[in-house]
């Protein structure tokens, strides 16, 4: 564990707490892509079910339980409790364009051709693009509530912090994980446009609005 990874994980944790706070206080999931949230459930289940056969640390296990539990709870809130506030007509990204290529990539790029490793690769590839339905929705509506942008920023910062973590681990432990690093760089890259608007507008007190 190093500081970059710890801060990254805490940022990930914070992003989910911000999202839950937004949904609970506004009693609405307006502006949140159900498809992205469903993809995160798939990511967490595919990767973290190793809870049952791989023990790393109490920290690691507790985080895995939290991520699986909270992501399922968010889906429940969107699908049942606050269903009327969820508008599928603007959540139109075709997720099969993400699922199928990720499935194929995970069959080609994995560390061992066995179900658990293929699932692990699949979850890494899928996580890297899972935010696309959400960003696509933002692009369509052209604006977002401030709290939704804080959620996205925390999620993007989490990914960005994993990059110095890998650099640090490479130099201190000689560890390199090419699949996670490649997917992680792609994933962070997807946030660049968003970060630009977030840092130049939202943090200056302006509304999050994309140029037409």
């Amino acid at each position: 564990m190093n500081l970059f990874r710890l801060l990254g994980d805490l940022s990930h944790l914070a992003s989910i707490l911000v999202l839950l706070h937004k949904i609970q206080t506004s009693r609405s999931c307006r502006g949140i892509s159900f498809k992205t949230q469903a993809l995160y459930v798939a990511v967490f289940v595919a990767r973290y079910l190793d809870l049952f056969w791989r023990y790393i640390s109490l920290y690691n296990s507790a985080m895995k339980v939290f991520f699986i539990g909270s992501s399922c709870y968010i889906l429940y809130l969107m699908k049942y409790r606050y269903r009327p506030t969820n508008d599928p007509s603007i959540d139109t990204f075709r997720i099969e364009y993400l699922l199928v290529p990720c499935a194929i990539l995970s069959l080609i790029f994995n560390y061992n051709f066995m179900p658990t490793e293929i699932l692990w690769s699949f979850s890494i590839f899928l996580e890297s693009v899972a935010i696309l339905p959400q960003l696509f929705m933002l692009q369509r509506t052209g604006e977002a509530e401030a709290i939704t942008t804080h959620y996205l920023a925390a999620l993007g910062i989490y990914r960005a912090l994993y990059i110095p973590n890998w650099i640090y681990r490479y130099f201190t432990e000689g560890v390199i994980d090419p699949i996670a690093v490649t997917a992680g760089i792609v994933q962070t890259g997807l946030y660049l446009d968003f970060f630009y608007v977030y840092f130049t507008k939202v943090l200056q007190g302006q509304k999050f609005e994309l140029p037409a």
Binding site: R5, D9, H12, D50, R54, I56, N60, M63, K64, F67, Y111, N112, E117, W120, Y162, N165, V175, D177, A180
Partner: peptide, 10 residues
């Protein structure tokens, strides 16, 4: 070393 990384990251 081991060709399969530990997967100790979240």
């Amino acid at each position: 070393g081991n060709p399969v990384p530990q997967h100790d990251e979240l």
